[in-house]
Design a protein around this nucleic acid. Structure first.
Length: 1009
RNA sequence: GCGGGGGUGCCGGAGUGGUCAAACGGGCUGGACUCAAGAUCCAGUGUGCUUAGUGCCUACCUAGGUUCGAAUCCUAGUCCCCGCACCA
């Protein structure tokens, strides 16, 4: 009987202190003669509210395993740290006009205290914090390496923007399409330059690698496969544009400082292109502008307008450098409409253009008039003319122009190009644009009767003819204003762009539409519509009266559309099966240079820019001279400033001159720092490697150490990370492996996803519902050990479950029972029977732990304890029991261990071995039989007593070989009556009603008197 | 729509071909202890029949099937949960 509660607190403190002092759980590198084992739980965000039950749960799961492996003789790595960058600390700082670091440091302190109080066997010496400059320095270092490898790049992207906050929001701050601070304000999608990591470069390996991860949950792998979404298909080129529309071309040269005005038009590609165009019947003018070295806008204007008669809606205007700027100004003022404008390395208001700045050529606004006057605008820029890129991007953005980036053309002068030829320009002028369309159903290519371009496609406007402009723009406006939550239910809608594409095989003209249902960043953002064989295309065609052409056998009238079958109406390909046709048509396209095999992924590159303060600064300097410059390695880390002022929710780095203003290391002039910080998922993408050498100041980590410990043998975390962290950390591992920093290509051998804990009411724990159970408080009631035990008793740790006070009581009862038994200990001898149960227990419990079926292990432990209580046990048996018990209840186990004179820590003792020979299932069978017999007797007694009779003595008749299983005294004691046992073949037995005739194996005959 | 997981007793949850009327915990009922409550301990806890107990019947979402034998395997249906979602 339990007499009193245990003083849990005192025992917990005592042993936690001893473990720490004894450095019980400190991991040593490269221990000889021991196999390593790396157990890791995902490190937490240190929130101000401290450890919650979910934390307690996941850490208990990992702790049990770490303890198990340690006892099994492994060299165990079990570290812990903090994912300490993030929004909550920043918000707290905004609210309190303080620094996020303050909150974070306090929260971490509290976390460590609580974690230590929970008896978790971490190696605290390796602790790391992502907000520590010594840590995030390496975030930045990896970023620079990615930049070098072309894996980090900058691109325009849609981000969530709240017009009331006047800032970009993180995804987490968008709730149902609204701002988290302004429930009535729809978040807008804004196009901004952002940094990306090219996860797509590893898409294939991220996918194929899953097959080898046989110790990962199928569900997680499936989610990742889905997310990566590989599909193999064909990319088909559809030519768009109409040569006949162009009657002439006018090329305006640029500024030439050296003078030599009379020869400027002889230079570089101007004459070459004129020649080519005229051969194609396009009249080409290359006027010589006055005063090439000291240009004046009005003079140039007058010169151009000499050609006024020639300039009309079928003209193409081409401007090189300052000539491009000139054309922009002219087009922003004139009423002339032209077909197309092509700018080659256009000038901008740039310091290098010092002389031209006063020319008036640059005095223009990128106004709506330009867009109205010109059907299509293209801009050529060379990637090595860095200082011009930003400007070109701005033009392209503001004008809705197509930006064509080429390599190594400098300023497009012949001496930089090494030739006077410029075929890309020619192509841009004469042939229509080729629009790449991705399809997995190229077999239905002959049934393509329209194309649909995504409404968000950056080059959409170049397709829209002037007569369709108004309608398209209205449509785009409507698409843009549709709220996120309505988008699901939004019908497939679209409008005609006015353009036609040439079918690559039939040459047919097929209309190009734009539609709200085409995703801009998958494939090429354009789909071919095959209404006869695709449900969505069918609906679209029906709605807008588009042509439907059947190319696969089957009854379209019945099924609306047919999906697979034999081809018809497909020229030479008719008769082929869909599968064959895919192959053959791709080959045919390939021969014409109009198509190729292509793999498309749903996986997108990882946008890591966050317009937030509390994160790792992106180590980039923007220099007007040198363009985008990475911070030099030796200048790392780029530290977050201590002295900051929050103004609203605006990132305080922006207005922080000390931070922003920085000398460009290349040219020495003042540049400005990138003020965006990295997504915090970056920090957690490689922390598991830093633990292995967490104090290294010179290197990210020592390869030898990393190779010793990696991979993580058991990684424990939440299912919710399936398509985020669980992909990112694999991506980072592959990249770091490619850098030669670590050998493994997969970070975690085994992944375990823990379940979710709900409140007693089965609902999510939340303050507002009042159903939150805080581990620290629960531990006061049930002891840390009681809480730990309960957490893994209810169900398998991968399952969701609800907290239950009654259940926790049950666990506490068991702990108390064990405690009592040891308090009042009489050492016995281990009987054969006990040995059987102990050895079997060791065997099965070990298997259950290994399989992470802790709940089953606990059940077996309880059963074993039941036997020990009944049968009594020797010291060795009790030791074995405590060793196993200690995984779940380490404090109590240590206390009891020392009580029975165990040496050292039970936590560091060796896992008990079982002796197969001592496991004898017959003992168990006999036990069960005996139990059943007792039960039977009980029932008979009840009946006898119910009839008013009174039993005095019980006679049992058993098979001779079972005789020793039935102990008269023990049975008698149990029943409270005298019991006599006879073997059935006993001649002298007393058996008045012939009950011995009923005897079966394991079933004795019973007679009650 | 696509993909994944799952429906077991009053509840949570074991169990993936026989040893299953179904582990273990909780609840509930009865008993012991107690002045009493709590705690603790013991017993019971599908139905109907049968027997002084050992026997049968009905039961693991529903309906079929495979098998000597199914909660467990197969087929169809149904309901629930989760993930991705107009992915060409």
């Amino acid at each position: 009987m339990v007499k009193k509660m245990i003083n849990f607190k005192a025992i917990e403190k005592k042993w936690q202190g001893k473990w720490e002092k004894g450095k019980a759980f400190v991991a040593k590198d490269n221990v000889k003669g021991k196999k390593k084992f790396y157990v890791l739980e995902q490190y937490p965000y240190p929130s101000g509210s401290g450890l919650h039950m979910g934390h307690a749960f996941i850490y208990t799961i990992g702790d049990i395993f770490a303890r198990f492996k340690r006892m099994q003789g492994y060299n165990v790595m079990h570290p812990m740290g903090f994912d300490s960058f993030g929004l909550p600390a920043e918000n707290a700082a905004i609210k309190n006009k303080s620094h996020p670091r303050k909150f974070t440091d306090e929260a971490i302190k509290n976390f460590i205290k609580q974690m230590k109080g929970f008896g978790l066997s971490y190696d605290w010496d390796r602790m790391l914090k992502s907000h520590d400059p010594a840590y995030y320095k390496w975030d930045q270092w990896i970023f620079l390496k990615m930049l070098e490898s072309g894996l980090a790049y900058r691109k325009k992207a849609g981000v969530n923007f709240c017009p009331k906050c006047n800032t970009v929001l993180a995804n987490e701050q968008v709730v149902d399409g609204k701002c988290w601070r302004h429930e009535d304000t729809n978040v807008e999608v804004k196009q901004l330059e952002q940094w990306f990591l090219k996860t797509t470069d590893y898409a294939d390996e991220l996918l194929s690698g899953l097959d080898k991860l046989d110790e990962w949950p199928e569900m997680i792998k499936t989610l990742q496969r889905n997310w990566i979404g590989k599909s193999e298909g064909t990319e088909v080129d559809f030519e768009v544009g109409d040569e006949k529309k162009i009657s002439n071309a006018i090329i305006i040269h640029g500024f030439a400082a050296s003078g030599r005005e009379e020869t400027i038009n002889e230079r570089h590609w101007l004459t070459w292109i004129k020649d080519k165009l005229e051969r194609k019947g396009i009249k080409t003018f290359v006027p010589l502008m006055p005063h090439v070295s000291t240009p004046k806008y009005n003079e140039w204007k007058a010169e151009l307008e000499k050609l006024n008669k020639q300039i009309d809606e079928r003209s193409i205007l081409i401007g090189h450098s300052a000539g491009g700027a000139f054309l922009l100004r002219w087009l922003s003022e004139t009423n002339k409409k032209i077909n197309k404008l092509i700018l080659v390395a256009p000038g901008g208001k740039h310091k290098k253009a010092y002389k031209v700045l006063n020319s008036g050529l640059y005095d223009f606004n990128l106004n709506a008039k330009i867009k109205d006057n010109v059907d299509e605008i293209s801009i050529f820029i060379s990637n090595d003319e860095v200082h011009r890129i930003e400007n070109a991007e701005k033009y392209a953005r503001d004008l809705g122009a197509k930006l064509i980036r080429l390599d190594e053309r400098g300023h497009f002068l012949d001496r930089q190009m090494g030739t006077k030829e410029f075929p890309e320009l020619l192509n841009e002028i004469v042939s229509g644009k080729k629009w790449k369309v991705f399809t997995t159903r190229v077999d239905t290519l002959f049934g393509a009767t329209f194309l649909v371009v995504s409404a968000q496609h950056p080059e959409l406007m170049s397709l829209v003819t002037s007569d369709r402009k108004r309608e398209v723009e209205a449509f785009l406006k409507k698409v843009k204003s549709t709220k996120d939550e309505d988008r699901d239910r939004m019908n497939k809608e679209g409008v005609f762009t006015g353009s036609y594409a040439k079918h690559p095989l039939t040459g047919e003209r097929i209309p190009i539409w734009t539609g709200n249902f085409v995703v801009s960043d998958y494939g090429s953002g354009i789909v071919m519509g095959v209404p006869a064989h695709d449900a969505r295309d069918w609906d679209f065609a029906k709605k807008y009266g588009l042509k439907i052409k059947q190319v696969i056998e089957g009854d379209v009238s019945k099924e609306a559309y047919v999906v697979y079958g034999k081809l018809i109406n497909s020229e030479g390909f008719s008769g082929l099966s869909s599968e064959e046709a895919k192959e053959h048509i791709t080959i045919a396209l390939n021969e014409k240079g109009l198509g190729r095999k292509k793999v498309a992924y749903k996986l997108r590159d990882w946008l890591i820019s966050r317009q937030r303060f509390w994160g790792t600064p992106i180590p980039i300097i923007y220099c007007d001279n040198c363009g985008i410059q990475p911070v030099r390695e030796k200048d790392l880390p780029v530290k977050l400033p201590e002295n900051i002022k929050f103004q609203g929710v605006e990132n305080p780095l922006k207005g922080n001159n000390n931070f922003v203003n920085v000398k460009c290391w290349k040219c020495g002039k003042m540049g400005r720092r990138e003020t965006d910080t990295m997504d915090t998922f970056v920090d957690s993408s490689w922390y598991f490697l830093r633990y292995l050498d967490s104090k290294n100041k010179n290197k990210i980590f020592e390869k030898k150490k990393a190779d010793y410990w990696m991979p993580i043998d058991l990684y424990i975390g939440g299912k919710e990370h399936a398509t985020m962290h669980d992909i990112y950390f694999r991506f980072y591992t592959k990249f770091l492996s490619d850098l030669g920093l670590v050998s493994v290509r997969e970070p975690a051998k085994r992944l375990f996803t823990q379940g979710f804990i709900y409140g007693e009411d089965g609902k999510k724990m939340s303050k507002s519902l009042g159903n939150v159970i805080v581990p620290e408080i629960a531990a006061k009631k049930y002891g840390v050990d009681g809480v730990r035990l309960f957490l893994v008793s209810v169900a398998g740790p991968d399952k969701d479950f609800s907290w239950s006070e009654e259940g926790a009581q049950g666990s506490l009862r068991f702990v108390l029972k064990v405690w009592d038994y040891f308090s009042d200990l009489k050492l016995g001898k281990s009987s054969k029977k006990l040995e059987h149960y102990v050895n079997k227990g060791i065997r099965t419990i070990g298997i259950d732990i290994e399989n992470m079926k802790y709940n089953l292990a606990v059940i077996k432990l309880r059963e074993l304890f039941g036997v020990i209580e009944k049968e009594g046990a020797g010291k060795k048996d009790l030791e074995s029991f405590l060793k196993m018990f200690g995984l779940f209840c380490p404090h109590i186990a240590e206390e009891l261990w020392s009580k029975i004179g165990g040496k050292g820590f039970v936590s560091l003792s060796t896992w008990p071995e079982f002796d197969e020979k001592k496991i004898d299932d017959k003992i168990e069978e006999a036990d069960k039989a005996l139990e059943k017999t007792v039960n039977d007797i009980g029932q008979i007694l009840k009946l006898v007593e119910g009839k008013g009779g009174k039993a005095e003595k019980i006679y049992l008749y058993v098979l001779p070989q079972e005789l020793k299983s039935y102990d008269e005294n023990a049975l008698g004691e149990k029943m409270g009556l005298k019991v006599k046992v006879y073997a059935v073949n006993d001649k002298n037995k007393y058996d008045p009603s012939g009950k011995s005739g009923k005897v079966k194996p394991g079933r004795p005959g019973i007679y009650v008197e």
